[in-house]
Amino acid sequence: MAYDTMARPSTLAARLDAELRHAHPRTVIQAAVETLGDKLALVSSFGAESAVLLDIAAKVKPDLPILFLDTGMLFGQTLDYRRALAAQLGLTDVRDLRPHYQDLATVDPQAKLWQTDTDACCHVRKVLPLDRALAEFDGWITGRKRFHGGARLSLPVVEQAGEQVKFNPLANWTKADLDAYAAEHELPAHPLVEQGFPSIGCWPCTKPVEQGEDVRAGRWAGSQKTECGIHLARAPGAVADVGGDI
């Protein structure tokens, strides 16, 4: 399968989505690697469902850059899981992305911004670090799935994201598909899953969910917020500034 890497991102994304919309996740990742080579990264939270995508990616390209957003407010269990899982899967290029000190000093000096403005907190701790890191890539892989609901119900397998191409290899998979793959390949679960956390982010804004609730119901519970911001559309090539020397 050959791809025109000189095509505009929108044209390339549309063609790839048409060809890959029913493909196995491994096929999607292989196509992404063939298309973008060293200009491709995978963004992972090392959360409740991350092991499946990371295992598939490791089987395709173990040195694929893995971008991990260490916000400074993650559960200790997530940090331990990130180290253990990366070692088990043989991932050789996991990059820890942290917010710039100047950004935090400017907008969140007391680390309490999450109490008053969760969007701004996510912006400084997730969006800005990821935008900076992605500047060197032409495309990236995410772990989003349609069964998470909300805006993800219409998630394509391949889409345009500003000047980049975004791949969502697990878009078509259900929770049963993920569980079956994890069991078959004996992948370790995030330690918080058995405590009622089916989706895991920063500790101040992540709660356990009740049986039957939406998988992401514990994220920013009690608010209208459903996304941290890294998957929301922004101006092509733009990296927002929060002030300070960044």
Rank of each mutant, 00 (worst) to 15 (best):
P156C: 13
V157C: 08
V158R: 06
V158M: 11
A161N: 05
A161F: 12
G162W: 14
E163H: 08
E163F: 06
Q164E: 04
V165A: 04
V165K: 03
V165W: 00
F167E: 02
F167Y: 08
N168R: 15
N168C: 13
P169T: 13
P169R: 03
L170Y: 01
A171H: 10
A171L: 03
A171G: 07
N172R: 08
N172T: 11
N172D: 03
N172S: 10
N172K: 04
W173M: 09
T174A: 05
K175A: 12
A176E: 04
A176S: 06
A176M: 02
D177L: 00
D177I: 01
D177E: 01
L178R: 00
L178W: 01
L178I: 13
D179E: 14
D179N: 04
D179K: 02
D179P: 07
A180G: 09
A180W: 02
A182I: 01
A183C: 01
A183Y: 08
A183G: 05
E184Q: 08
E184W: 08
E184I: 02
H185C: 02
E186D: 14
L187H: 09
L187W: 07
P188Y: 00
P188W: 00
P188F: 07
A189W: 05
A189T: 07
H190F: 12
H190Q: 09
H190Y: 15
P191D: 08
L192Y: 10
L192C: 15
V193S: 07
V193I: 06
E194I: 12
E194H: 15
E194G: 09
Q195S: 11
Q195C: 13
Q195K: 15
Q195D: 10
G196E: 00
G196L: 14
F197M: 05
P198M: 06
P198F: 13
P198E: 11
S199F: 11
S199K: 06
S199L: 04
I200C: 12
I200Q: 12
G201M: 14
G201S: 14
C202S: 10
C202F: 10
W203G: 13
W203R: 04
P204K: 04
P204I: 05
C205S: 14
T206M: 01
T206C: 09
